[in-house]
């Protein structure tokens, strides 16, 4: 991966270093400031929950850090590499090798079975798990040959999680992964994410509207009006199964 590198120092143990991250949509009087200079460091293997109302900037933040969108100003360093200086091809490589996504609406390919949806990723990854392993991790080993049309919403989302973890990413981005699910199913999905985070040490950034979910995280980031208004650690992480909403 090209891009200017920071000089290595002990504090670089952080996975992400973010400086003055700013995103403005449009120009002049109609310009919308989605992010107004975010400064942040994120350590490896953490479970981070991003909270905030609609339009608070949390999704924009996730999109830029996830390599889907470009910043207007500021810098994002990933493992010492300046992500904000990457071109489209390097961003593709970044998404391909280092990070993973779970979406609110699952985004499974309807014409592929659960196993094949996971293979979609394992085929292009360097050191993936087998699709079977990944699906077993989310408890779907019995539904492996089912098509999305034959799976419930929660099951589809767990396939999506299996698909995300199968390449052993360093980071997993989850944008409202339980947004389309009822609470019972939501808990099962969160359980899968929690398990992946604990067992594989995958850094997980999870966007949610649901404050309760923050209790399962190591750290909580709250966004409002494009700014980071709250950043606190949660020393007493609870299991998803204990969450109620």
């Amino acid at each position: 991966m090209a891009g200017p590198a920071l000089s290595r120092s002990p504090q670089d143990e952080s996975l992400y270093i973010i400086r003055g991250l700013t995103k403005v949509y449009g120009e002049g009087p109609t310009a919308v400031h989605a992010l107004r200079g975010i400064d942040l460091e994120l350590p490896r293997s953490a479970m981070v929950v991003l909270l905030g109302a609609s339009g608070s900037g949390k999704s924009t933040f996730l999109n830029i850090v996830g390599g889907l969108d470009e910043a207007t100003d500021g810098e994002v360093f990933f493992e010492g590499q300046e992500l904000t200086a990457f071109g489209p091809a390097e961003l593709t490589e970044y998404r391909r090798n280092s990070v993973s996504f779970v979406f609110q609406f699952y985004n499974l390919v309807a014409s592929l079975t659960a196993r094949e949806n996971v293979s979609l990723i394992t085929e292009i990854a360097d050191d993936p798990m087998t699709p079977e392993e990944a699906l077993a991790l989310v408890g779907l080993e019995k539904r492996i040959d089912h098509f999305p049309s034959q799976l419930s919403g929660g099951e589809q989302q767990r396939v999506a999680i299996a698909r995300a973890i199968a390449k052993r990413p360093k980071v997993m981005f989850c944008d409202e992964p339980t947004g389309a699910l009822d609470s019972q199913t939501g808990v099962i999905v969160l359980d899968a994410l929690d398990q992946v985070n604990r067992e594989l040490g995958t850094t997980t950034l999870l966007i949610t509207h649901n404050v309760v979910i923050a209790d399962m995280a190591d750290r909580l980031l709250r966004f409002a009006d494009g700014e980071l208004v709250e950043d606190r650690d949660n020393p007493h992480r609870v299991a998803p199964s204990e969450l109620r909403w």
Binding site: S119, E123, F147, S149, Q150
Partner: peptide, 24 residues
């Protein structure tokens, strides 16, 4: 999600050599 579980679709699943994009 549109239903792809018909006979031929299954058959395509049986061909192990195919990569997933080709299966799609």
């Amino acid at each position: 999600p549109p239903n792809y579980s018909g006979g031929i679709a299954r058959l395509i699943g049986k061909i192990r050599k195919l990569d997933e994009p080709t299966r799609i």
